[in-house]
């Protein structure tokens, strides 16, 4: 461990039943850094992201955020940490279908008790920034996959998170839309100095990162450090 990293995972192990998903995985992410987590299907990269983001508790090993060991936090504390410090983008957007795109983006702010008007004003700015201001009043089912994913990115960014976790954010998109999502996501992250943990099996998506970590059979390999 460098001691200065924003996010550190140390020797994580996690099994689902008899199936091991992580078998001694470690990684570090500095503030403002974009790190791609790559590997074949079933290698454990999504489980690693879920453990590092505090969604899943590892069987053993430790996760630190800002020097604080989050694997020891109670569920409510971890939830508060995720809402306040982290943003999430998943493969299929996972927007709330009953809400408009604007309401979806404003939702994390409303959960933090921000007034509706202020929350929606901020949400509208992020929708414009992600080039989907024109779909603010539509519901997720009424927009294209690429637009929906950009709405999901706006929702992840609206709370000004310190870390954005993106799990296959372009996996359901064609090349052109995937590229647009990555360009906007990484530009916004760099501008706000947010770190990004980007799980992907696509090399062209990983090429937007600063470095990559490869997961194979539940174990990690930091390529930058392995080759240098």
């Amino acid at each position: 461990m460098s001691g200065t990293s924003l996010l550190v995972a140390d020797d994580l192990r996690k099994s689902f039943g008899a199936t091991p998903a992580l078998d001694g995985a470690s990684m570090e992410v500095d503030a403002g850094e974009i790190v791609a987590v790559m590997g074949p299907s079933g290698s454990g990269k999504s489980t690693l992201l879920h453990c590092v983001a505090g969604i899943v508790r590892p069987d053993s090993g430790r996760v630190f955020y800002g020097g604080r060991e989050i694997s020891l936090l109670r569920d409510a504390e971890r939830s508060a940490l995720r809402r306040g410090q982290f943003g999430f983008v998943f493969q299929f957007g996972q927007l709330v279908p009953e809400l408009t795109c604007l309401e979806n983006v404003a939702l994390p702010l409303r959960l933090e008790r921000m007034r509706r008007r202020a929350a929606e004003r901020q949400a509208a700015q992020w929708l414009e920034r992600l080039e989907v201001g024109d779909v603010a009043g539509k519901r997720p089912g009424e927009v294209s996959g690429g637009q929906g994913q950009r709405v999901a990115v706006a929702r992840a960014l609206v709370t000004s998170p310190k870390v954005i976790f993106a799990d296959e954010p372009t996996g359901a998109l064609d090349s052109l839309n995937g590229e647009r999502v990555m360009r906007l996501l990484t530009a916004a992250a760099r501008e706000t100095h947010a770190a990004v943990v980007l799980v992907t099996h696509e090399a062209r998506v990983a090429a937007y990162s600063d470095r990559e970590i490869v997961v194979r059979d539940g174990r990690t390999r930091d390529m930058a450090r392995a080759v240098s």
Binding site: R183, A203, R204, A206, A207, Y208, E212, V214, M223, A226
Partner: peptide, 19 residues
């Protein structure tokens, strides 16, 4: 692995150049 890292290094450079 080292070839993979070298390929990705070039891909990053091209992605920057593209943007």
């Amino acid at each position: 692995d080292s070839q993979r890292a070298e390929h990705l290094r070039l891909m990053r450079e091209l992605t920057r150049r593209k943007s």
